[in-house]
Write a protein that binds this DNA or RNA. Structure first.
Length: 325
DNA sequence: TGCTCACAACCGCTTACGTCA
DNA sequence: ATTGACGTAAGCGGTTGTGAG
């Protein structure tokens, strides 16, 4: 049995005003490893917030690049910014339903649609969960909160059930932008993001983990496709070479004339470093041999744009032995 | 200096749930 | 209305790196 404090999940207004809206709930359970971590982080977060409103009012100064612009599609789009950047941005706010952590309220319309004075804090408002009767001291009866299309009871929230909480498109887009900047987060970034999006740090962490997994999966698919095509091309190449070998063998058995070619007429092919005859050889031997094509394997793997896709800068091309060896 | 332990961060696999055709 | 496929948030166990004793 373990007691722990959780912040952020059932937000309450702290410090008043627009600023930080952190929730607090009591967790009674076995407290898994990750939850331990989360709790520690969140306790740390609480310390930070207690001591002078750390992150919310003094955005982290981390050396991250400015954000790429995202097309604005809805007039109601909210202005978002990464906690560690100064550049604001607007993201699509169309979205199915609403913020899962955000029950629409009268204030919200005002804060999100107008009032340019509070760009930084309006985001906090927008992603703040405003849940009915969820504040401490409001009775404590099992209330339910509207989470997008999903309705989750307090009981479920406290770990009694496993309700899936889908992130809103706004949250996902914001996380996505963050991921573009850095695909891993340090604790401060995690906290800042969590605060910004009004998510638990653990949720941010999980999102990044899953996102990395998705990236990796996609890259694996790309690599697979790349290797498949390489295999295909090599198979064809091999078939051609086998055919040439067969033809040359046939030629050799029928007319082993080149055995009598004077040594002075032989020269080294610079491409494959094999001895080649300068004598005009009729039929098959006269055709440009694959051996004398300038490094066909290298050409294969250096084909411009060959299977180069995805987010990776360069595909992990297999190192093949040189054809000369 | 090497060893052990605790801890944090991450990953891979999996489950559970929401969405959509 | 039902169902199966798919996407994804989250849980869990294992691995690895690091610092303290």
């Amino acid at each position: 049995m373990e007691l722990g404090l959780r912040l952020g999940d059932a937000p309450e207004k702290r410090g008043g005003g627009l600023g930080l809206m952190l929730g607090m709930r009591l967790v009674v359970g076995r407290g898994g490893r990750d939850e331990d971590k989360e709790r520690r982080v969140e306790e740390e977060e609480e310390e930070e917030t207690e001591e002078g409103r750390g992150l919310a009012e003094a955005p982290l100064q981390l050396s991250l690049l400015p954000l790429l612009p995202v097309p604005l599609q809805q007039p109601s789009s909210r202005q978002l910014r990464l906690p560690w950047t100064t550049e604001t941005k607007k993201l699509d706010a169309s979205m199915r339903g609403f913020d899962m952590n955000h029950a629409p309220s009268a204030d919200e319309g005002a804060s999100s649609s107008s009032s340019p004075k509070s760009i930084g804090s309006s985001f906090q408002m927008d992603f703040s969960a405003q849940r009915d009767g969820d504040e401490p001291g409001e009775g404590g009866e099992a209330t339910a909160v509207e989470i997008g299309s999903l309705r989750v009871s307090d009981e479920e929230e406290n770990g009694m059930g496993r309700k899936k909480l889908r992130l809103t498109k706004e949250q996902s887009a914001f996380l996505e932008e963050s991921f573009k900047e850095h695909n891993t987060l340090n604790p401060k970034q995690k906290l800042a993001l969590a605060k910004q999006l009004n998510l638990r740090p653990r949720q941010v962490e999980v999102w990044f983990q899953n996102r990395r997994a998705r990236t990796k999966l996609k890259q694996t698919e790309v690599d697979c496709e790349y290797l498949r095509r390489c295999c295909q091309t090599l198979t064809e190449e091999n078939r051609r070479l086998q055919k040439e070998v067969a033809e040359l063998r046939a030629l050799k058995t029928s007319r082993p004339f080149y055995m009598h070619v004077p040594a002075t007429t032989l020269s080294m092919c610079p491409a494959c470093e094999r001895v080649a005859s300068t004598t005009t050889i009729p039929t098959a031997a006269a055709t440009p041999s694959a051996d004398h094509r300038p490094n066909s394997f290298a050409a294969l793997f250096s084909k411009p744009g060959a299977l180069q896709s995805g987010s990776r800068t360069a595909p992990s091309a297999p190192r093949l032995p040189s054809p000369a060896s």
